[in-house]
Design a protein around this nucleic acid. Structure first.
Lengths: 202, 202
DNA sequence: GCCGGAATTAGAACACGTTCTATAAACTCC
DNA sequence: GGAGTTTATAGAACGTGTTCTAATTCCGGC
């Protein structure tokens, strides 16, 4: 509500940062987060360590991201955007929604599994997030949903398609978490996703 | 591995507690946890507060439950068992798996929504749990799965039915979390569950 | 160039999960 | 019923997320 609070919101949203210096600080913070998470997962993303590595004061880190969860979920959004861009430069093979969704799903899943610690850090933050991180969560949810609806068809998605995309996203995340916590193997995950998509799209 | 560790595992599993005094202590701890969670959610379940309310020393609490997450997930298992028992005493109406699953789902969901803080505490603990709580997580997953397979048919479930139950469980949990974090209304949740079950079972 | 408010910094301080220590009480087995 | 072991207790101590404070630097308007 106060002016400074409004400014903070802008910083969090990652847009309209007043100066180039601020955009750079923000980038350094996210980069530091991803680096630390890649090395040691959720526990290794310690706020003092992030601040050190990004060369900002602890207070500044908190001005940009009001909590560790915000920080990690924002980083997840950044990673998903990268994955989306990469996907946009690929032609998705398959002539049914079933095949195309499965292709996208498999590719992103394998991509995340290539960096287990980072995936652990981001998925745990995502599922642990409380109401205060609603905006960041919504952004990630939207990215996931649109990732799958795009694979289904080139047109604007119908409500049913959106719903299916959401269900796929739920199952996907849950299986990713199961994999991250070693309760499911990569094969389990692939099988369950295949089955889910088949049930929903065939 | 050590003898005392083996004993601790027994305490965690909640079975074969050597003495009545220990069974009572364990019950007091779970009761205290549920009471505190009901009042103020995840954040209100503070280990010192639980120990105080259960009239045990902090060290004793940690001997019974090695972390806050173990404690809350175990409490979730207790709650689900209660719900299951209640369900067993009911005749589930509906003559298709679709109808019966939807009935069970609606009932449990409304039950949990009647106690939002408790639900928030338990679902957040469940989704935040790491590998060390694998056993507790598996127990809860199994309870959820069997809840839904039972609603589908009286027979032993097929692999496909188990898979469907798991998908429903994933979507259910995800929507519960969305509701808990105020990103979805009770109506949203009901609609999405209806749609999911319809897609999977109709 | 200079002023005033905003942003940044270094670091102390605080909260809560978790671990550790020393002592006391409760069991077990002879 | 006593020695030895396990379990419970009170409370200090520690780590890390978060908040607070005081001093400094940066930046936009004059």
């Amino acid at each position: 509500m106060s002016p400074s609070k409004a400014r903070t919101d802008a910083l969090m949203a990652g847009e309209e940062l007043s100066s180039a210096a601020q955009r750079e600080r923000r980038k350094r913070i996210v980069d530091a987060t991803i680096a630390l998470a890649s090395k040691g997962g959720f526990d290794a993303v310690q706020m003092r360590a992030v601040a050190d590595r990004a060369d900002v004061a602890l207070g500044t880190l908190y001005r940009y991201f009001p909590s560790k969860v915000h920080l990690l979920v924002s980083s997840l959004a950044v990673e998903l955007e990268r994955a989306q861009e990469k996907m946009d430069r690929t032609t998705v093979p398959g002539d049914s929604p079933y095949e195309r969704v499965l292709f996208v799903l498999g590719r992103i899943t394998r991509g995340l599994q290539r960096n287990p610690h980072l995936t652990e850090a981001m998925t745990r933050a995502f599922t642990f997030a409380d109401a205060s991180a609603g905006a960041e969560i919504d952004k990630v949810s939207w990215l996931m949903e649109s990732m799958f609806t795009r694979a289904m068809s080139d047109e604007d998605p119908t409500d049913e398609q959106k719903a299916i995309a959401r269900v796929i996203g739920d199952v996907w995340l849950s299986n990713l978490v199961a994999w991250v916590t070693r309760r499911a193997t990569a094969t389990d995950v692939a099988n369950r996703l295949e089955l889910t998509v088949r049930l929903l799209l065939k």
